[in-house]
Structure formats: C-alpha cells, structure tokens
Design a protein around this nucleic acid. Sequence first.
DNA 1: ACAAGACTAACTACCGTTTGTTAGTCTAGT
DNA 2: ACTAGACTAACAAACGGTAGTTAGTCTTGT
Lengths: 219, 219
Amino acid sequence: MVDVRLPRAEQVKVRPAGTEELTTRDRIVEVAARLFHQYGYHATTMRQIAGGVGIKAASLYNHFASKQELLTTISYGTMCEMLASVQTALAGVRDPGEQLRAFVRAHTTYCIAERYRARVADELRDLDPENLLDVVAMRDRYEAVLRGILAALDASSGGAVGDVTLVANAIGTMASQVSTWYRDDGRLSPDEIADVYAALALGAALAGVSQSGARARPR
Amino acid sequence: MVDVRLPRAEQVKVRPAGTEELTTRDRIVEVAARLFHQYGYHATTMRQIAGGVGIKAASLYNHFASKQELLTTISYGTMCEMLASVQTALAGVRDPGEQLRAFVRAHTTYCIAERYRARVADELRDLDPENLLDVVAMRDRYEAVLRGILAALDASSGGAVGDVTLVANAIGTMASQVSTWYRDDGRLSPDEIADVYAALALGAALAGVSQSGARARPR
DNA sequence: ACAAGACTAACTACCGTTTGTTAGTCTAGT
DNA sequence: ACTAGACTAACAAACGGTAGTTAGTCTTGT
C-alpha cells in the first residue's frame, strides 16, 4: 500500500527503453486486481482503487469507461496471458506425460506469480453477459489444451486416465486454487510448488481408473 | 447450527413425521445461500432474499439481526456439517489409504449435495473479523483431519506422500472445487464423481514425491 | 495552442437498516 | 369458556449513507 507515485516530470523523462515504469492505466489494473481479489468486485469501490493509485475516483474514467470495463480488462487479459504462457511451455514437448507436467508447472507458476489477476479471472460471476462470453471462450480454449494432453496420455497409456473431462476439471481447479493458500513467506518456492503439483497431477491422471476398482465403463 | 424452531401452531398440528415443511428461517437460509453463491454476498440484496422467500426485506430482521449474521449462520453451520459428515464417514476405518478415500468421498459428496452452502462457506472474505475467527477455527479442525490421514499414509508408505501440508491443500481445494463444474444433468452421478475423486486423491498423494525426481528433501 | 489527464462538485440510485404498526395466536387467570 | 396480555412475524414508509458516474474546470508538457 506504499504510494509510489512519481512527479509528472519524471514519468516522461528518463525512460531507458528497458527500465519501464508503469503507465497510470497499468497501475490502475494492478491496484484493481489486488483489491478485487482481496475484497471482491462489488465490495471494492472506485474510490478505493483511485486511492491505491494516488488519484481521485473521477480520474479513473479518463482510462476506463466503467468499473465493469476495468474488470473485463483484467479478466480477459489474464486469460490471454495464461493461454500464451502454457503454449510457450508446451513448445517442443512431445511426450504426453511431459506435456502434462509442463502444463501444470506453467499454470501453477502463473497462478502464483500473478495470483491477484489469476483469482479475479477465475471469478466469472461479476462479468456482464457480453463480456462473460469473451472470457469464457478464452477459458474454453485453455481447458481444451489440457483435455487434449490428457486424451493423448489416455491413449498412450491404454486408457489409464479414464474420464478425460472430469480429470481435466479436477487437475485444472486444483492448480488454479494454489493461490488460495500460497504465502510469500512459505517454506517452498513457487518453482518447487509447481514441481510438486506437476507430480501430483501426473499421479492423479494415471490413477483415475486403475485404482477406482472395476468401474471401467466408458462415457 | 440448524435452528429447528417451528411456529407454535405447526408444532402441534399435523406433521406426518417425514413430510417436513421448512420454517421461514430455514427458507431464508436456503434462499440466501443460493443467491450468495450465484451473485456473491455484496451483490445480493436483502430485498432479493426477501423476494425469494416471499416476504418483505424488513421482515428478514425478525429472523436475523443483520445480513452479516445471515452469512455467518450459513458459513458456520455448513462447516460444522462438513466436519460431522467426514467424521461419520471415517468411523471404523483404520487403513490410511481407505481413510483418504472415505474422506475425499464424503467431502466431494457433501460439496455436490450442498453445493450452494459449501461454496459460500468456502468464501471467507465477506465475513466480519469476529465471525471469521469461528469459521476459520472450524475449517482448521477440518483440514487437520485430512493432514492426519495423510501423515499416517506417509508413515505407512515410507514417505511416499512427502509434503503432507502441501498435499492436503492440493487435495482439499481440488475436492472443494467440484461444485464449480458439477451439473445436475451431467453424465456422472455424484457418487460416481466422488469415487473417481477419491481415486485421484489417492493417486496424487502417493505420487507426490516418488515422481517428482530426486527432490526428497524433508520439511 | 492544444490535448491529456488530473481535480472539485454534484447527481441519481439504491442499499442495509430502523421505526411504528397490525393481524393473528398462544398463555393464563377467572 | 372467555378474555386480557404477551408474543410472533408480517408490513409500509422512511432514513442515513454510499455507490458509480457525469459535468465542468484547471494544470501541464509538448
């Protein structure tokens, strides 16, 4: 909650093309994401957001048309980033088991690094219907990637995964929720947690049917 | 936490001992839980809740002192029910692996059956500090049960679980989130989902370290 | 000079809650 | 059996506060 506002002058002056200072717009997004995460969309006021940035509420409307547009920006942008992040992580990985590890590792890492944004994006209930559509479409693409990996793993392991959709939901929600209990002062680093989660996911995926008794009925 | 008070008249009148009609108070809790789940606590108005019950907003205050008390009633009552539910499921089960299955099965089943209440109880952020304390205390007891089971499983399997706390968090959040994707018209019944989840949890618990490479460091 | 972006001030709408009242019902003294 | 008083739970109306948003103005870097 430290106000890092800078005098107008310095915002434009020295900008060594790599040491980027955030624009007001970006800082609004950052503050809003943190507050939406902490208190929820409806419990957060425009005056709170403005206060966090160091401006007045009315000034927010120079950057966003409405509170709802601000939420949509966060949710949609985060979804796009998440998708891009796992696609990068999957580049060149061929083995389905390794793909699953890479996916879960990337997803977990992102959900910790960008935990405020990630949690807000996971909360679809406050989005207006038209905005919801876009965000859900992006999320569906994301989940389709995971389902594809699990389907490949299922095929390459003689049906060990079982219900691909269900397992995808289970693994996806598990990894997304890492931000609910992660603490910066915890004893494991984000990378270590991501590694364990990848192992957990692989163990779960390959145990879905093999351990569940005789319930081997498809569909 | 369920208040079984009944209107004086109906306490004596016809009550076929199985066809129970809900009290107004219970109906308020039910409607509120559904609305809190659907729109969130802050986005739900007392007038909406009253409308769902078929009374006016002011009348709600004959049954609850405040909106916050209503939320606390839902959250705390649900936590107590969840704890009772897993304790019943664990009665007499000795093998750690079977305990884990029983726990996850019971938890998953409850989270589907009472999905509105369960989701609201999982959302601690809208509780006032003093109420939060009680609910968190109950949740800690709940999580301690799971950690105990995993510790026993770890001991009986030569350290296969690894980080008990982390795995408990992972399994707990995974099962709690089942209500985010469960649909009544889905192709699997709640019992079937619970069975698969139990298998997934067991697979994950026993894969935590054995698959995560050479990272066998304790703590 | 001008555009970007900050500010002050205000508006409208609605929220949680309070107040005062009323109809009906149970309890108890006669 | 009847009635007086207490209790329950509903209602209409209103209150104080605050939310998102808008309009208009001022400042400042280019």
